[in-house]
Every structure is written in structure tokens, then in C-alpha cells.
Computed example of a mutant assay.
Amino acid sequence: MEDILFFLEIMGTVAFAISGAVLGIRKRMDIFGVSILGLTTGVGGGIIRDLIVGNNPPLTFQDPVYLVVSIITSIIVFLPVIRTWIFRETRFYEALMLLFDSIGLGIFTVNGIQTAYQSTNIHGIILLAFVGVITGCGGGVLRDMMAGDRPYIFVKHFYASASLLGALACILLWNRIGYGGAMLLGATSIVVLRLLAARNHWSLPKADLPEE
């Protein structure tokens, strides 16, 4: 079980790092900027999570495997042959990234809940849900802010909402079916919701402002 979770976490980290690196390339950043944006997206949510629950220094720096994976992924994306393929095969890239990103969102959300359970004596639903969502979405928010964009999760698609619903499912099932089953069902629900949202173009309502 732990080996499977680790593999899925690596997949999610790679997907997050690619999204950050591609945005850096689109913003005409150099290789350092692309690497930092990929790194921030890959591990940013986990760092915020650890600061909230009191893991100091953050686990990313205690076991830097995800940090290294994020940087290597970003450098690979920056290579001319890879970035040319990404921007040429747009549809295939977007489909692949949707799958990997959805898996990463699901895994990191429930991983954040597990970390909060293990690191604090406060198991209130608000704290656990917040830590779960921030672990899944925090890196993307930091990425967009560093790139000068409005955070993606606030303006497009059913993203943070899927993370929140999956987090709540995981929390409510935690003591009923055990942490393994709760994490599996929580992560699966997030992946399914993300894929359904992308297929059916689900978005939250937006306010209509009068024309000036």
C-alpha cells in the first residue's frame, strides 16, 4: 500500500512540476525561473501543510525526493525537444496532464489529511479539510501568484471544490472504515469528480456584473 501511494505521489509531483514549468516557459522565464516555478508547484502545498501542522523543518527538506523530482522534471520540460513536443501535441499533453494532475490532487489532498491526523491532537473537520485542500491546491496557487496570474482554482473548472468534497469524504469515513479505505475512497472521488468536471465543463457560478 505504501509503495503504491509513493508511486502515485511521484506521479502527482511530476504532473504538478510540469504544469509549473510549462507556465514558466509560456511566461518567457529562463531555466532558473522555470525550475523554481516547477519546484514551487510540485512541493509548495506540502510545505504549507507542514508549516500549518508544525512539522519543522518541512518534510520536503527532511526527505528531498519530491524536491529533486520537481527540479529534474522542470529541467527536462525546458529541453528544446520536450517543450517543442508539448506545445505541438497540445491535445495529448492536456489529456495526459488532466489525468496525472487529477491523481496528484487526490493523493496529496488525502495525504494532507493523514499528516494532520499524525502531527496534531486537533482532529476537527475544519482543520483536517483545510490542510487537505491546501496540500492539494497550495502549490498551484503559489505558482499562479509567482507567475503574475489570478490563481487558476478561483476562476476555472471544478478543482478546489473536488478537493474539498473528497477531503470531507475521507474525514467522515476515517474512523468508520479505517484510514486506508478512507484515503482510497477520498482520493478516488476527487479523481472522478475532476475527470467528470473536465468532460462536462462543470464550473462554479460566477457573478454577472452590469455593463458600464
Rank of each mutant, 00 (worst) to 15 (best):
M1K: 09
L5G: 01
F6Q: 12
F6N: 10
F7T: 15
F7C: 11
L8N: 01
E9D: 15
I10Y: 03
G20K: 01
A21K: 09
A21D: 08
V22W: 10
V22H: 06
I25G: 03
R26Y: 10
K27P: 08
D30R: 11
D30W: 13
I31K: 05
T40F: 12
I48W: 00
D50K: 02
I52Y: 12
G54T: 04
T60C: 05
Q62S: 12
Q62I: 13
D63W: 09
V65S: 12
V68C: 05
I71S: 11
I72Q: 09
S74P: 06
I76L: 15
F78H: 12
I86H: 08
E89T: 04
E94M: 14
M97Y: 05
T109S: 09
T109R: 00
G112P: 01
G112Y: 00
A116F: 00
A116H: 01
Y117A: 01
Y117S: 03
T120W: 08
H123W: 13
I126M: 13
L128I: 08
V131N: 04
C137Q: 09
R143A: 02
D144Y: 07
M145S: 11
M146T: 07
A147F: 06
A147R: 07
A147N: 07
G148L: 15
D149E: 14
P151F: 11
P151Y: 06
Y152G: 03
I153P: 03
H157A: 14
F158M: 12
Y159D: 03
Y159G: 03
A160N: 06
A162P: 10
L165P: 02
L168Q: 08
C170R: 02
I171E: 09
L173Q: 04
W174E: 12
N175T: 04
R176S: 11
I177P: 09
G178L: 05
L185S: 12
A187T: 08
A187S: 15
T188K: 02
S189L: 15
I190D: 01
V192A: 14
L195Q: 12
L196Y: 06
A197V: 01
R199A: 13
H201F: 11
H201Q: 14
W202D: 04
L209N: 07
E211M: 15
E212W: 11
